[in-house]
Design a binder for these strands. Sequence first.
DNA 1: GATGAATGAGCCTTCATTCAT
DNA 2: AATGAATGAAGGCTCATTCAT
Lengths: 193, 193, 193, 193
Amino acid sequence: MTTTRERIVHASFDVFDNLDFHKATIREIAKRSGIAPASIYKHFASKDDLVMAITNEKTKQMITELNEHFIGVRGTMNKLRKMTWYYLYFYENNPQVSWVVNISTSVKSWRESSDGWKNVRQTGQTFMGILREGQKLGDVRQDINIFVMSNIYFGGLARLVQIWLVHNQSYSLTALADDFAETIFAAVRTPTE
Amino acid sequence: MTTTRERIVHASFDVFDNLDFHKATIREIAKRSGIAPASIYKHFASKDDLVMAITNEKTKQMITELNEHFIGVRGTMNKLRKMTWYYLYFYENNPQVSWVVNISTSVKSWRESSDGWKNVRQTGQTFMGILREGQKLGDVRQDINIFVMSNIYFGGLARLVQIWLVHNQSYSLTALADDFAETIFAAVRTPTE
Amino acid sequence: MTTTRERIVHASFDVFDNLDFHKATIREIAKRSGIAPASIYKHFASKDDLVMAITNEKTKQMITELNEHFIGVRGTMNKLRKMTWYYLYFYENNPQVSWVVNISTSVKSWRESSDGWKNVRQTGQTFMGILREGQKLGDVRQDINIFVMSNIYFGGLARLVQIWLVHNQSYSLTALADDFAETIFAAVRTPTE
Amino acid sequence: MTTTRERIVHASFDVFDNLDFHKATIREIAKRSGIAPASIYKHFASKDDLVMAITNEKTKQMITELNEHFIGVRGTMNKLRKMTWYYLYFYENNPQVSWVVNISTSVKSWRESSDGWKNVRQTGQTFMGILREGQKLGDVRQDINIFVMSNIYFGGLARLVQIWLVHNQSYSLTALADDFAETIFAAVRTPTE
DNA sequence: GATGAATGAGCCTTCATTCAT
DNA sequence: AATGAATGAAGGCTCATTCAT
């Protein structure tokens, strides 16, 4: 059984999926969901609220699933590979989310959404956790700038997704996961001598 | 003496600087520049044209200046450091450009602007050039995935700029240049044994 | 009870009645109908659509009523008189329609409206039908140029209406029907000898 | 030697010839004449003034030439044929004028132009003159309604021109002159018995 | 006499949103 | 809970027109 709310959320992703975010209107969502515009406002306070709700929902799902994938994985490199793969896998299967996050939401109001920010921080924490653990294990250099490293990682991933979207998703995104993870690992690993 | 066109361009950056790109309207630009909306259309064919024109202008300037900074610089790491520093320096001094490029322009129409795309490719070429030269010199590993590496580099930089903007430019961006360049270099350099 | 749509249509005629069609704007129609511009677009897809819709509506009505008036009328001259009278009667009571049809609508888009053109052709057919029937009855000459005759008839009527409008509808239009019909009949009747 | 004014007038006809009168803008006239918009205002007080001026000019020319063509023509039918031919000939060679007169000029302001109205009346007088002369000669019935007849004549001609324009001037207009004149004559001639 | 540059007014249209039912 | 009907606000853009040079 699909609730009305679910139908709205589903249609929203559908709408944001077409890359041209000027077309991402409430009326379009209403049309595709078969729910009247006025009814959408019974479930979401405003358009911004809707956008935030659906991105948060997806991000939460992402975090949950990522944790599941982590179960039993050991070793810095393995975790890095797993996380990278999952990230790309997620966007390969939810290309809209990236656009919603990057484009549609006004950054200002997004920051004001505690939930949204919290989720992003949490994903960031996971990455930093891997690095810190690696430092303890001796895999990762002690002198890395974690802030910079983290931005390189997520910025690089985001760029990869963006380019892939601009190229109309014409190639496999997950196929790049290994190279990506290895490059990042090369940047952080303790030099062998 | 400032020409009308310059005043429009100046006001445009001012407007896009808001971060809330929904407010980036022709009327707002008109208000801040003291130029009537109708007059703006004497200088730019459309809003899209205006956005493209100003970003291209800045990007071209960026490329020119970057090349000047390269004069006399030798060594892979030195070039990497220089390029990174200049990139961050440029956005530190033109924070608006980042938003215009990353947010405001509809990706579709931007790709259709041969100039815009050409400039981006050119910047990309510069980075790849450094890597290839490094490979010849033996500084850089032969087995790196240049496509992935390039996206890590520019994605990382862009993210750094974005975070800095979101944090209201409250710290020095260029101060991160060295750490950034070194991290990237670590990821590509030939392992010492 | 008047529906919103009816109020819009009514106000539209009111507006076009101005004679100065440059003033026939959506805003003006909105003002006079007490309906917001945005609401007008819920009932008509565009301004052109509105113009077409209202003229077609009226023209259809005209055709229907004309046919009713024809019931039981026999003889070429009688039919001619009836048709002429009704045509002038209609415009005397709907003076705006003439302007909308003749002036406001861009001829190009009007021709593209199958409905509009169809209705006009139908009215033309009715006139030609009378002539052909008259020819069978022997009332009407065989050697008339029906194309020319038809244009004389409708052109003459239209001119009569226009002049009447320009003279601010200061006299009776239907009072001219008999003279008009007789003149036309004189032009087509079989010479008596 | 062509004066600036002449170039403007020439370009204006060119522009109005488009049939799509929404495109008949001052800027378009400026572009085609090679004269700057501002300069046009040195020669004509306003757009309305320009439109009026050019139509009056053409109409005056029409009257002059028509009178020349009348020289030596005798007999009601001959005069009718000549006038009709010339009228169609004129519009066949100046199709724009019809549109300017019928469409572009706001009827209100056109009536206010004494010149425009005077010229139209004068053409009307010529036609009525032929009829009255015919009545004296015994060719034309005494009991015709001259007002109605006149409108039938000019309305019919105008309609013929309009239809011809709508059909993209794809056939000869003057070829219809004889049939037209004869039809009109049939409507007014004294019945033979 | 000619014009480049500028503009106020206004156009059609669309959007997110509300409210009576 | 759902919606049809309505709208204020705003957006991009164009036009006839002016004026300093």
